Computed example of a mutant assay.
Amino acid sequence: MSVNRTTNIEQAVERIVQPYVSKRKHAVLSVGILRGGERLVFGFGDLRPFGAVSCDHLIYEIGSITKVFTTSLLALLIAEGALRPDDSIGKFEPLLPGNHPVTLAHLATHTSGLPGYPVFKAWRNRFDKSQHRDPYCHFTLQEALSYLQNVPPGKVGRKFRYSNEGTGILGRILAGWLGTDYETAIARRLCVPLHLPDTGITLTLEQQARMVPGYAGKDVQRPETLLRDYAGAGALRSTLNDQLTFLSAHLGDHPNDELCHDLLVSQQAYGRHSKTISVGLGWIIDERGKFVWHNGSTHGYSGFMGFHQDRSFGIVVLSNYRSGLLSDSVDRIGLDLLDLLKKP
């Protein structure tokens, strides 16, 4: 990439990011671009509290980008022939019949029949404090499995309903099939072979020192997000450096060629969101814009990862703020960057 081209990108990134950062007092934003084998990294906000730590080694909660790690694990096992996308989840969950209509692909594409936002259940949960429920999950694990026991077959595979519980159950199934817990399964099959030393759930003391405090609303500091039952839906923490390396594997630009090839399984369309948007294993595929993406947010963090369908470039944005429904977001930044990089 030429010097002039790099300078122009730096200026454009600054222009795209500044409206977001200027409205958030404690914002620490890490932005990364992969293009033509080159990695560009940008940090915004006050980095002084972190000493000599560069922006690409700061640790954030990545929220639902965790889901792409979960579905990438599924893709590896499918590519190896160990599992099939149409395997019934009844093969793995003893509470469900062996021929249950919901498959692993249904969980990965949010088409299992689990409701995205069960209004009546959410209202009831406000008055029921007797049971633990993971953040952003309306069903306990037992409740979700009970719901699946009775889901009408006609509802399965027909409609996209974004479900934290569904991907969480998928992560639980995959880890159980591998004979371990979710964090260990991700570490062994993805983090170690891809060399992602700062991606996980449990942090060392040194990693805790690099964790950026999370915020929401009007600069209110928020507690860490802990998921007990549905780790595969959003429990991972990571750095921009690790996320760019993970993305490089999906772009086919990582030294582990075999793993790169196996991850292609996740980028195939297995379901539909709408007329112009299909769903891979975890990935959302915008067929009109020709890009693939996923985002994530927790109590005090948000992130965006996306790449062009021809895998020529990709971007990652990590923020220590959870955005409100009507406020500027990392999604806007991510989409603007994807549009920027399409230009010659």
Rank of each mutant, 00 (worst) to 15 (best):
M1N: 09
S2Q: 14
N4M: 10
T6I: 14
T7D: 12
I9E: 07
A27M: 15
L29W: 07
S30P: 06
I33P: 01
G36V: 13
F42W: 09
G45M: 08
D46S: 07
F50V: 07
V53K: 09
V53W: 05
E61N: 02
I65T: 12
I65V: 15
K67G: 02
V68L: 06
V68R: 00
L73V: 12
L77T: 07
A79Q: 08
S88F: 10
E93Y: 05
L96C: 10
H100V: 05
V102W: 02
T103E: 05
T103V: 08
H106R: 01
L107A: 06
H110C: 01
T111N: 01
L114T: 06
G116L: 05
Y117F: 14
A122V: 11
N125F: 02
K129E: 11
D134W: 05
F139I: 11
T140R: 07
L148N: 11
V156L: 10
K159R: 15
F160I: 07
R161H: 15
E165N: 04
A175I: 12
G176L: 07
G179W: 09
T184C: 03
C191L: 05
P193D: 02
P193L: 10
L194Q: 00
E206I: 05
Q208K: 14
Q208P: 00
P213D: 10
G214D: 11
Y215G: 06
L227Q: 12
D229K: 03
S238R: 07
T239I: 08
L240E: 07
F246D: 02
D257R: 15
D257E: 15
E258F: 05
A269V: 00
G271Y: 00
S274R: 01
K275Q: 11
V279F: 01
V279W: 01
D286Y: 05
G289L: 00
K290I: 01
K290A: 14
H299A: 15
S302P: 02
G303R: 00
G306Q: 01
L326D: 14
G334Y: 12
L335F: 13
L340H: 08
L341D: 09
